[in-house]
Structures are given as C-alpha cells and as structure tokens.
Design a binder for these strands. Structure first.
Lengths: 209, 209, 209, 209
DNA sequence: AATGAATGAGCGTTCATTCAT
DNA sequence: CATGAATGAACGCTCATTCAT
C-alpha cells in the first residue's frame, strides 16, 4: 500500500467531476510521461493530446506534479493489492516468487506507462515529502522479496552460495525493466513472459551438464 | 567519434592543464546528469558543482548537448574497444558471454555515470542526427549478443527451449541496470559481481534437483 | 505571405479583440525596431512598451524573428498591391515613375517603421531562407524601376547620356531614404513630398538657363 | 572638425604601440561593423578577422565602443578637413555644391566602411555624451549645405519654387546613401560618379522640352 | 603583445500556473 | 468546463570585458 496517499475522491472541488474524464486525462498524461519523461513533458503537450488547452487541465488537477502523484499512487495501490493477495496465500518460497513475478508482469501489462515512469523517476522523487510513499513502498518491496529469497535459502530451495542482496537486486531489476520494452498485445502474454522469465532465473540459461 | 585529445599532462607543474580541465568538467557533468537526469539538470547546476559560472562552461563546450554527446561517445568508444578485444579472441559462446559480461561490469565500474545516462536517455536521443551513433551501437550490440546466444543454442551450450529474443533482453538488462545501484569501491569488485551474475544467469538461482 | 487574419472587430464591445491585439503588438514592435535597430531591440523592451511581460509576447508570436517577418511581409504585400495597380494602368514611362514615386511616399506614410526597418536590415536578412521573399521583392523592384527608366530613355522622355544603373540607384535611394526623417502628420502630405521630389529628380534643382 | 574628440595619441598606454597595428585593427573593425552592423558585430569576430584572440584587442583599445568612436571621429576629421578646404576657396553656390559633392564621393571612396557605419548607427549614437561630436558635425553639416543652397536660391542659380529643407535632405541623403552600394575599384571613379550625380541633381533626368 | 580562462549581466525563449470571462 | 491571455521564474546561451601568466 502507498501508506500516505490521498484517497482519489478526497479532492474537494472535483468530487462532482465525472471520474471517467479524470481517468482519461491521467491515462493520457501517463502515456506522455512514459514516452518523454516527466520533466521533458510539458503540460501543454498533455493538453494537446487530450484535446483541450493547457490551462484547462488545472480545473481537474492541482498541478503537473499531482498528476504524477496520482498516476504513481494508483499504480502502487493496485500493485500492493495484488502482492498482498499472493502473500496471504501462504505459499512456499519458490511458489511465492513465481506468483510475485507473474503478478508483476500482469501489473506491467495493465500499468505499463506507470511502471515506466516509476522506473525512470522514482529515484529523484523519493526525497520529496509528497512522494514519501515511494520510499515506503520500496522498503516494503525489499522486505517481501528479500525475505522470500532468504526463506528459500533457509529451506534449501534457493542456492546458498550467492550474495543474497545481489540476487535480490538482480531479480528486482530484471522484472521491472521489462516495462521499457514490453508492449501490451505483443507476441507473448504476461503469463507467458513470466513463465519464460522464471525458467531462466530459476534454472539458468545454460544446458545442464 | 570524439576529438578531445588525450595528450597527457605536458606541463611540469601541478597546474591543471587544458585537456584535464575538460575531462574534469565532463566528469562533473556526467555525475549530475546521472543523478538528476539530463533534462532536469541545469547548466548552472553543473557550473556550481564545478566551481565556476554557467557562462564559463561555454568556453570549454559548445552546448549542454555537446557535453552529453562527449560523455556518451567517449563511453561507447571505450566499451567497443573492450568488446572488440573479447570478440577477437575467438572464444566459444559461453566463454564469450562470460567475457562480455565481465567487460561490461568493468565498464560500469569505470563509466558508471555514463552508463546510467545511457540507460535513461538513449531512447529519446536516438532520433537526433547528432546521436545517430547510439542507434548504430545498439544495433551492433544486438548483433553481438544475440549472435553469441544463437551460436550457443546451436552448439548446445545454451537451452533451446527459451525464446531467444526474450533471453537476449533479459541478459542485456541484467547487466546494464546494475549501473543504477553500483558504486565503485563497494563491497564487490566488478569481476566478483560479474561472477555472481553469470552464475545466476547461466545456472539459475534454484537448487538443482 | 503572412497568415494573420484581418477579420474586423467582431465583438460588440470596445474590448480589444485578438487580431487587433496582434496588430497593436506588431505596431509597437515595428516602432522599436525602427528606432533602435532589430538586433539592439530586446524583446523585453517591446514588452515594456506594450505593457506586458517579455514571455507573454510568445503567446502571440513564435519568436522575435517572426515579428520582424510579419512586419516586413505585411508591408511588402501592401507595397506590391499598390505598385501592381500602378503598373496595370499602362501609363507612359514618366507617368509610371510619377505614380510609383507617389505610391512609395504613401507607403512610407502608412508603414514608416516597416520601411525604416527594411532599409536597415534587409541586406543581412536576405540570406536566410525565411526572408527569401526580400530578395525576390528586391529583384522585382529592380525589374520594374529599371525597366521603366529604360523605356523612358527609349521613348526619349528620359536623358540618354546618364548611366542608367546609376540613375536607378539614385531614384530608388531618393525615395526610400526619406523614411528616416519622415513623420506622418508633418508639414507636408505624402503627395506633396512626392510632387517636390519628382520635380527635383525630373527637372533638377538648377535654374534653367 | 569633430569638436571634442580625443587626439589619437592621447591614450596613455598605447602611445608606444606601433600605430600601424592600431590602424590595421581599426580598418578590420570598420569593415566588420559596416558589413554586419555595430551591435551585431562581436568583438570576437573582429579578433578572428585580425588573427588574434578577443581579449587581446583590449591591449589596443579600451572597449568595443572606443573602436567605433575612433573610426567615426577619424572619418569626420578627414571629411571636415576636405569640406573646410572647399569652403575656404570662396566659390559661388553652384561651384561650392559641385565641390562638396565631389569631395563627399571621394570620402566615400576612402572611408566607405566608416560612412556606412555612420549612416547606420549615428542616429542612436548622438544621444551619448561620448558621441556628442556626431550631433555637432550634423549641425555644422546642415549649416554649410543648407546655407549654400539658400545662397544659391538668393543668387538665382537654384530654383526658388522648391521647399529648401526638403531639397537639403534630398541632396544629403542621396549622396551618403551611395556608401551602401559603392565599391572602390568599381566601374566608375568617385569623380565620375560625382559628375553624373551632379548632372542629375542639377538638371534632372527628364529630357528638356 | 598575446593567451587562456574566467566573470557577470543580459538575452531570447519556455513553461507551469493563474484567472477573468 | 473550457478558453484566452497573461505572469514570473528559470533556462540555455552570448558576449564585452578582465586579468594572471
């Protein structure tokens, strides 16, 4: 969960606004942020893409930053809903990793722009108070994944001869960086990509001797 | 690709000579570009960090973009020098992959900011004529890595049951994304990180049945 | 040549409408360009004079250069409309020269700043593609005036003992350089100035023997 | 005379400097000022043209403005030396005008860049105290030319039916604007241009009835 | 005399944001 | 809800000028 993010309908002036329009505008903004980068994206560009004037966006949103905020927190909310469901199932370490990876590729499929933005911008955003939930999410993420890996090593299903933090970074990075090349509706479904990915990570690409 | 001359310190005193000053400023710029992103970095920020005024940078460089250009092309020149040496050795597919990965981590060690910048900016830079070499490098990169993987599959040293392009992306990302967390002088040497990564990628993290 | 639309004041109130605002700003810019020179004029100076901030000019115009472009092309469009009407009348050489000179002084009356800018800047502008129409106008101008003078010599209404190109330059400069001192609403109307100039140029200032 | 201009060798630091180098640099500067305009000319451009670095010009001159000053005042000094010689000859009005015009074209021949600069820049320079001599020269110029024309009208050698101030501006402008197209070593000598010019101005271009 | 490197003010321009209509 | 016009801060960059060497 994103810890401190405002519930979507907490904005007082826009509560009456059709939430569909809002979602629509955010989707447009996310697409542009992902394609061009947050800083390089002008509010005018988003407005152009959405078919209104730059100033008009401010009827719907407080600021460019609040759009980014809403995009990222919405994504993280969903991500953690999925992760939490996996964790609640009480699976073994290997099965947990498999389920988390599959869930992650499903999130990339559903929120590709948000994931791409997260990858690109989260590092220099975590400092700002408004985005404190990014750091919180990152910490929880590490706890979950690293914990599962450690449990796997303890239960002898994962190798003990590897630096566990290195392994964690390895898995974390390779999963999420897929958002940079993944295109929904491509050759492979998220589940198929997860299957192949897990096969590589768990068993390696070398032919067994 | 670049024409900064590498004439060594020819003055007898410890006075900072011209090419050194250039390198020094580029190192500062690269550090800031990597930390903040190219677009978000102001030329004043680079100047502050380097201890001079913004306008003074233009005595040494034509533009902010030309600094980026020089950083990236210098890095790629060195990277390809290393890769070409590996390829010239005529190793088998597995040994070639091992040598390329090791060389890559060495480049990350030497050019961490440049690698981080490359990761973050190359996508939207490849369009511009000035950065055409980025696309060329990317193509050559794919040829080399994908070719080696295919050779490995043909020679039965790499698994044949995986989507080879997916494997390529996986390996490629695995290596370069490490630049986002790697810090020179940390717990592991580049060679040690390469060894662990190769062990994961080649043999998997799961305990063998 | 330009696409500023000349829709008249369509609002019922005295509120300044958009095309008027544009014209107003261009008039201000032209006045300052004429007084200080294009290069020496800062966009802030124009904005000050017009009562807004420098950046706000960019809501109305793409660039400082596009203001210059619009000023010059608007002027030349009108000038050629006038000239073409004269030429279509099929007058004799002397009457054509008289009508062209009179028309020219009327243009100076209506577009004094534009004429002054044209005089001062056209030479180093003609190189740029955007201002190619300046060179085209200049060529057409020479064709018309030189042709009329030559016709006059052929028809024995102008002297044959003078270098015709020298005469052309002399007459051309005579007319346009007046923009540097002419002030609308001064002692003489454009038509009166044209009459006196024509008297001088055609008959000379010396008392006839 | 330029009233208040400093005698060339009054600069304390440069009195020992070879005056040839100084003249050479000023000639280069004048050429560039004339071609590009004073404001549009960078000190670096002058230095490039002269084969040294921008900063080195400051060994020879106090400032860019002082180069302009020296160029203009040198030109005006020579111009007035010539004019004063003409005036001292005590000729009749027509012969005085003829001699002044001839002298003017000779000055254009010798000081074309300076004349062109004068034409283009003097208007917005006359305000500054340093260039007060420009206004003084202009006043003296008007006194001499307008006076001679008036004397000619009084003595019935020039027409009385023309506005005398208009005539003055007419002659003044058409003479000096020649600097904008005159090229030394061209088809006509200054004296030949003066002869043709005088023939036009005095007798007109129309064939006498 | 000239260089190399810097200063500091200012330039044209961009852009997130505001607000009366 | 949206527009049109503006604000104001900041940006990349230029350039006359300075000065130790």
């Amino acid at each position: 969960m994103t810890d401190n993010d405002p519930v979507p309908n907490s904005k007082k002036t826009t509560v009456i606004t059709a939430p569909d329009r809002r979602r629509e505008l955010l989707a447009t903004a996310a697409e542009v942020f992902a394609a061009e980068g947050y800083n390089a994206t002008t509010v005018r560009r988003i407005a152009d893409e959405a078919g209104l004037l730059a100033g008009s966006l401010y009827y719907h949103f407080d600021s460019k930053e609040s759009m980014l905020d809403e995009i990222l927190s919405t994504f993280l909310d969903e991500l953690w809903a999925g992760y939490d469901a996996v964790l609640a199932a009480g699976l073994g370490p290997r099965e947990t990793i498999e389920a988390l990876v599959t869930e992650s590729f499903r999130e990339i499929d559903r929120h590709r722009p948000a994931v791409a933005i997260y990858q690109r911008e989260s590092r220099h955003l975590t400092g700002r108070p408004r985005f404190a939930y990014l750091a919180a999410s990152q910490r929880k993420f590490e706890t979950v994944w690293l914990g599962t890996l450690e449990r796997g090593v303890a239960e002898h299903v994962f190798r003990a001869d590897l630096d566990i933090r290195l392994t964690y970074r390895f898995v974390r990075d390779t999963v999420w960086v897929a958002a940079s090349w993944y295109r929904p509706g491509g050759a492979h479904s998220p589940e198929e990509i997860a299957r192949q990915y897990l096969s590589m990570v768990l068993d390696g690409i070398a032919v067994r001797a």
